[in-house]
Design a protein around this nucleic acid. Structure first.
Lengths: 337, 337
DNA sequence: TTCAGGTATGAAAACGATTTCAGTAACCGG
DNA sequence: CCGGTTACTGAAATCGTTTTCATACCTGAA
């Protein structure tokens, strides 16, 4: 492995000049630049990144925290984030907290040890009070998350509106007994959606009914379970709002199996606009989230913070959500085909 | 930010002793160790990882190359790999080649610049000849990939057998006109499956028919297209083998839409055993791949190579695949419910 | 002619750890 | 009492860059 010293020797120049060439500094004559380039090529020289990081106090690496990757929403987020990072010359380290506060806290040390220039939290497992002290070591940006206490930038989607438009759609279809179905992380993404859900109900003068609320639904299997729980109720709901397409798909799949007609007997609305919404029969009405845009913005904000070094400032960037109507809520949509 | 020097001063000892404590070296008296620990805690000291890497020539970071994360197979691989990495004290940098040889080559510089200790390739876009020179900078391990030329460890699945058992299953169901459907990357995962496919056909005395071969199917949309292409043939196939559950799902979804009964009119077998196989109606017969085991093994092999420093050795670790029969190939499975 | 300022280069310090080397004290068997 | 381990500690070298500082030349304006 050749070092900058080797290059300097071969070119008959000093380390300093070689460094200047590498970093595109001004004040290097064209002929010396050529000499250096030639020497670098001849030796197959590439600067050692540890040495670089040590001296310049930056790593060009960003850590992205997600609960888990398999969740399609987070897959999409990671994919988009990695692309943006690459475009800006950054590498991405993936940290799966698996919903564990301890794991999250442990990964936070990446910031303290200066292994990364910043941390993007697409999931929060600890109280902000616990996380805040890490701000002295580098920037933290929230992505798809929000915390009342957090004095850092937050790039998010308008989840209140998302819950609202989805629910309003069901109300417009004439439904009044609408079940509510979400996961139960400490994240307030779900809580925001619930606010929108309640707001829509209120507008139509419908009361929120706790017996229709299911707050432990994450996966398709949970959807199947919830389907049976709903149907076992004295007066089952005629529609259900879910926090993810997977749960919606689980409900629909189970309904199909048991001869419950969707949407006539039960209208279902999902969330995320994942591929599954168009593969299952009937296709799923859902809320589209501009994940790519959000990821891109979060990364840009992060880079900005890395450079400006002013981390402790609250900024909110919000993107709109869009309802996508498919067959799982509108009967005649099926007939159209 | 406090350094090891600060800790040493506060403890009234030398940097060397502090370093010994950090790295659990022997020959440190119990009382000095206590002093150091106390000083570290008091200062909130954490060693700087760039400095560490520079001196000790290791980063405890591994790069994982995948074409893209959104593909559920690779999501699963990344998830499993990250978990294993964390368990072994390693970080994972994600590199999406997006099927581009240039991007792959570019990411390879992570090895050259010593930003990572090793590279795990879950996808190969360049000729091995192009990749091989990087071996002088660190270990490369193939995961789910295989290359005749490559003189490095390869952790893989028995794709020949996978193609074989899936096809044999269709043949046993009485099918003789079996379509073959795969993606067209340069990866030989697909080619191996094709070998298995042909082997099964040969055993039953059925000839491979090129008109039934579709080699450009990656996503569910492609599945839809292929469905129509198949049905437009003079004598359409009665069964189809696909290289992924998504493609299978696309075919089934489109078949459902057009009143083509699965499996009576067309039997479909997928690959990967993704969640979708149980959500769609009819559920999809598929081939289960032990992705987690493979990821874990690949990581262990990588760590072993990092330590042993003998990279240029061919080793093959192979895991078996398993057929999972569901409704998309066996009619009476439906009746059982 | 002088002086300010832009251009070009290199010597040496700095980044923050680990590793090598050398030295001292304690212990133990002969 | 001596020679040889074993236990413990620290000074200094080292990893490979970037950055600071010093120096020198050249140009053009006063």
């Amino acid at each position: 492995m050749s070092t900058i010293e080797d290059v300097a020797k071969l070119a008959g120049l000093s380390r300093t000049t070689v460094s200047r060439v590498i970093n595109n500094h001004p004040y290097v004559s064209e002929d010396k630049r050529k000499l250096v380039m030639e020497a670098m090529k001849q030796l197959g020289y590439v600067p050692n990144s540890s040495a670089r990081s040590l001296r310049s106090q930056k790593t060009d690496v960003i850590a992205l925290f997600v609960p888990r990757i398999m969740n399609p929403f987070f897959s999409q987020l990671v994919e988009a984030m990695e692309i943006s990072a690459a475009e800006h010359g950054y590498q991405l380290i993936i940290c799966q907290t698996r919903y564990s506060p301890e794991k999250e806290l442990n990964y936070m040390n990446l910031l303290k040890t200066k292994q990364v220039d910043g941390v993007i939290l697409a999931s929060i497992q600890n109280d902000w009070k616990v996380l805040e002290p890490f701000l002295q070591y580098g920037p933290i940006v929230l992505c798809n998350e929000f915390d009342e206490q957090a004095n850092v930038p937050s790039v998010m989607l308008d989840q209140v509106h998302g819950g609202y438009i989805a629910t309003k759609h069901l109300l417009e279809q004439g439904h009044r007994r609408i079940a509510y179905c979400r996961g139960s992380t400490r994240s307030n993404v779900a809580s925001h959606r619930e606010i929108g859900f309640r707001k829509a109900l209120a507008e139509y003068g419908v009361e929120f009914d706790e017996q229709y609320a299911f707050r432990d639904a994450f996966h398709s299997e949970d959807g199947r379970r919830v389907f049976h729980q709903m149907m076992a109720l004295p007066t089952p709901p005629t529609a259900v709002f879910t926090g993810s397409d997977e749960v919606a798909a689980g409900i629909i799949s189970e309904a199909n199996k048991h001869g419950c007609r969707i949407p006539e007997q039960l209208a279902v609305v999902g969330f995320d606009n994942q591929e599954i919404t168009e593969l299952i029969e009937p296709s799923i009405t859902t809320v589209h989230q501009p994940v790519d845009k959000m990821a891109q913005k979060a990364l840009e904000v992060m880079i900005d913070k890395i450079h400006s070094r002013k981390y402790k400032q609250r900024e909110i960037y919000e993107f709109p959500l869009k309802l996508i109507v498919r067959e799982s809520t509108v009967a005649n949509k099926l007939a159209q085909l």
